[in-house]
Design a protein around this nucleic acid. Structure first.
Lengths: 349, 349
DNA sequence: CTGAAAGCGCTTACAG
DNA sequence: CTGAAAGCGCTTACAG
């Protein structure tokens, strides 16, 4: 493997000049730069990143630790995130070091990884309310970026959609269509985003002067089966008057709801409206549903490049306060929502 | 961060001695070693791995590139492998650098990763027949270990179950029970292991003097739905006399087969026997099936530690020929297999 | 058993 | 615009 020294000897220059030329320092003579670049090309020079790391004190690696969940939907989002993230990090010459967390202690895996490695930072995903990793990494002085949001007064970089607005907008659409009995099929409340969606839903319903009995706000790990069984029970009137609309935390849940409606001979959107949040995963394309799903859309893949860039900017010294992005999810109205049925205008009491 | 020099100054020793003491060199005086270790502890010394890497010429990182497949079952095995592998590698102070491959060129992602990084080696999974990655990495002189097997004359380290024996043993069990019409619901033939299982099945059936029409040997990406629809068609006699037994490439497929049998009012194992290969994934526990599944069992997780150790041994100079493991899958007979039904003794012609 | 020295391949003040 | 020098934090022949 050719080194800087090889190039410098080949050209009769000092290693320092070669280094500057290759790293685009403005002071080097244009002709010199060209010669150096040509020689580097010719010799197949690739900088030794280990040496660069030693002298710059940076490792060029960021870590990510995934919690293992016996839950396929999580796997799917995980692969989606991983795909986008490794590509975005590679574009900034950074490697992703991965570990799988099997420890109940939420920070043990982080501690272990920091002990073994010099890591420039971490990417945190799947935040829980008041996430303990935030305090740990802050106290260790390790930069990180959070995908999602876990507290109001965040003084660290994050990229998130406004999960309260996700459900609030769905409620807005449905109430405008005359719906009064709207059920929420949420994700499990361990996740910060689920808690936010519940809060957004509750506030929007309250503001619309609509009550929701507890039986119509359920929260479980997303699955088609979960959507199916709860919707079936609700539509059968087991908990009181059936909802005329469902807000689902994922398209997977919505698939179950639509199956339940079909099994009861109910039409969508004639008898029941369905809105889902759509992370745009390859396996559950909302547009392929029949009817096509009305969604609040926020492709997971879109988050990856900003996350990677924010983290690296932060490592390079950018202020956390300037690296906080909170997006509204895009509302896409398709065929699964319509006016409330005539006989469903009565609110829950 | 404390350095070797800090310790050496603290103790009035040379950095060389401190290094030797910490790295367990036999020649250092026991008392010296104790003093050094105590001081290291006290100062919270952790070796700078970047510096170690620079001087040893090793990066302490191995790469793995996962091909993205819009196929949940692959995700599940992927997470399983990742969990075991990161743990096993961490035990040998090695990091796993991960990338997701979206390029149709099978070696492009490897080339890119090698350009960006100094990697000590690769872990290859999901081999295809005559895997082109083998030639590429061999030619680049990069050590690797293969999970699975993709050619007979392998001169590289691998860890695999004998996939021909997987189906051959299943055929052996079923023919001993008097079955003559045995269908194979294989995984897609892009995978080397599927091709091997087909070969093992075909050879074992031939040896038992049993013919299998092409319609009863199908190959698709594993899913419950795939198992269900094919088994249903076969049991309905759409392709000729129904099979009395199914060999399934995964427990997921077996779940579909059992559902199909149930839907046709057939009992297991009274009317139909089912054998599946079981990678022991958390979501599809063969023992929880009803009846419990007879399987050829080879837990994916079991492969991780050997794979990690073989790769690191190979990097450290062990011969490839000494790092080749081919295991027979364990046959576990449970409730889903039984004697062929009386009216099913007629072989296919 | 221990130390002094060289070196891994870079980067970056400091001079000129 | 370029070079000589020091240094990042280790390891490891080579001497003693």
């Amino acid at each position: 493997m050719a080194t800087l020294k090889d190039i410098s000897e080949e050209l009769g220059l000092s290693p320092a000049t070669v280094s500057r030329a290759l790293n685009g320092f403005p002071e080097v003579n244009a002709k010199t730069r060209d010669k150096v670049q040509a020689a580097a090309q010719r010799l197949g020079y690739r900088p030794n990143r280990t040496a660069q790391r030693l002298v710059t004190g940076r490792s060029g690696m960021v870590g990510m630790i995934v919690k293992i969940r016996p839950d396929l939907s999580a796997d799917q989002t995980f692969v989606e995130i991983l795909t986008g993230l490794t590509a975005a990090l590679a574009a900034r010459d950074t490697d992703l070091v991965l570990a799988v967390d099997q420890d109940p202690d939420p920070v043990a895996a982080y501690r272990k990884m920091l002990e073994r490695d010099i890591l420039d930072g971490f990417i945190l995903n799947a935040p829980v309310p008041q996430d303990p990793r935030v305090d740990f990494l802050t106290q260790q002085g390790v930069p990180f970026v959070m995908h999602g949001q876990c507290r109001k007064d965040a003084d660290y970089p994050f990229y998130s959609i406004d999960n309260q607005s996700v459900t609030a907008e769905a409620v807005g659409l449905l109430t405008a269509l005359g719906h009064k009995r709207i059920a929420l099929l949420n994700g499990d409340l361990d996740h910060a985003y689920s808690a936010d969606r519940l809060a957004g839903f509750a506030a929007a319903m309250r503001q619309a002067n609509l009550r929701v009995p507890g039986a119509f706000m359920v929260a479980e790990a997303p699955s088609e089966n979960y959507g199916y069984s709860h919707a079936l029970a609700m539509l059968a009137g087991q908990h009181g008057p059936a909802p005329t609309a469902f807000i689902c935390a994922s398209t997977l849940i919505a698939a179950g709801v639509m199956q339940a409606a079909a099994d009861r001979g109910m039409s969508i959107p004639g008898d029941v409206s369905v809105v889902a949040h759509d992370d745009a995963l390859p396996l559950t394309r909302a547009i392929n549903f029949s009817p096509a799903l009305t969604v609040t859309r926020a492709p997971l893949r879109d988050a990856c490049t900003p996350l990677a860039n924010m983290l690296i900017d932060h490592i390079n010294g950018a202020e956390a306060r300037d690296l906080q992005t909170l997006l509204r999810a895009e509302m896409i109205v398709r065929g699964s929502t319509g006016p409330a049925p005539k006989d469903g205008e009565q609110p829950w009491l």
